[in-house]
Computed example of a mutant assay.
Amino acid sequence: MAAREYGQYCGVTQALELVGERWALLIVRDLLVGPRRYGELAEGLPRIPSNILAARLKELQAAGILRRAPRSRVVVYELTPYGRELEPVVLALGAWGFKAMGDPRDEQVVTPDSMTMALRTAFRPAVAAELPATSYAARLGAAELLVRVDGARLDVSRGDGPVDLSFAAGPGIRRLISGELAPDRAISTGVVEVLHGRGDLLARFATTFHLAA
């Protein structure tokens, strides 16, 4: 029996044998944002050893979770339909883990892909459907994201575009999303800096993106 096998006939056991190895779900998390080249995956997971990344990619490909695909003379990794079925699992894990998050340690980083998935996790489509369409430029640490909300539809991407509110925030954005800090208080204390647009739209952002801590 291989070391990674648990020797139990169970769906949870089978899932852990497929994606329970260290780094595997973080690779899936980043590929849920979109296809990535090998170097892009390595950049988004700066602590992963190259040999481990290569091994995990081979394992996930063998399991039918991802595939290699040629794109404009380069090879990218993308999730298969079977792999994309992990999205609600990853979002649920993110919401569960959010409850235990404190302030980040100095060595911990925030990446555009991790913040994209965090926003997907916190998004409340039923609430957003009752609000006017709104676009935000969010500078969250080193991650600069264009966040578009139109009814129950959320689109998060990198790049520029017209927005209703542009703001910058550090790790304290967690306190806004959790409801611990009111939007006007977040602005007055400097946790969130309004760069452009109407500051009162931060309340709409906090209503649209919420996770209970």
Rank of each mutant, 00 (worst) to 15 (best):
F205Y: 03
L66P: 10
P88V: 15
L45I: 04
D184E: 13
G83V: 00
E193N: 13
L86S: 09
D113A: 12
P88S: 14
G199V: 00
E107F: 11
V191G: 02
L18S: 11
Y38N: 07
L86P: 03
R139L: 05
R120K: 15
E130M: 10
E107R: 08
H196F: 10
R174P: 02
L131H: 04
R71L: 14
A15M: 15
A95G: 13
P81S: 06
L16F: 13
A15T: 03
L26M: 14
Q108G: 07
A206Y: 00
G64Q: 08
V74L: 05
V89C: 09
L93I: 13
Q8H: 10
R158E: 15
V149G: 10
T111C: 12
S72Q: 14
L18N: 08
T116E: 09
L154S: 05
V75L: 06
F98M: 02
L16W: 02
H196E: 13
L31C: 08
G97M: 07
G179N: 07
H196G: 07
A24R: 02
I173W: 06
A138V: 10
A206Q: 09
I27W: 12
P162S: 15
L41T: 07
I187K: 01
E21W: 05
R153P: 03
V192M: 07
M101P: 00
G170M: 02
D155A: 12
A62H: 10
R148Q: 13
V74W: 06
G7N: 13
T207Q: 15
V19F: 04
T116V: 10
G64K: 12
V110D: 05
L26Q: 15
M101A: 08
R84C: 11
E107P: 00
F98T: 04
Q108N: 09
E43V: 11
R105Q: 12
A69C: 09
R37Y: 02
R37A: 13
C10G: 15
P46I: 03
S135N: 15
V127W: 06
Y136Q: 03
R139T: 13
C10M: 11
I48C: 02
D164C: 04
W96Y: 08
Y82E: 10
R204W: 01
P112Q: 09
R139K: 12
L79E: 09
G197T: 07
L16I: 06
I177M: 00
D106E: 07
L195W: 00
R71K: 03
T111D: 08
D184I: 10
K58C: 03
R22I: 09
L181C: 01
P49Y: 13
R22S: 15
V12P: 07
D150I: 06
R68T: 14
R67F: 01
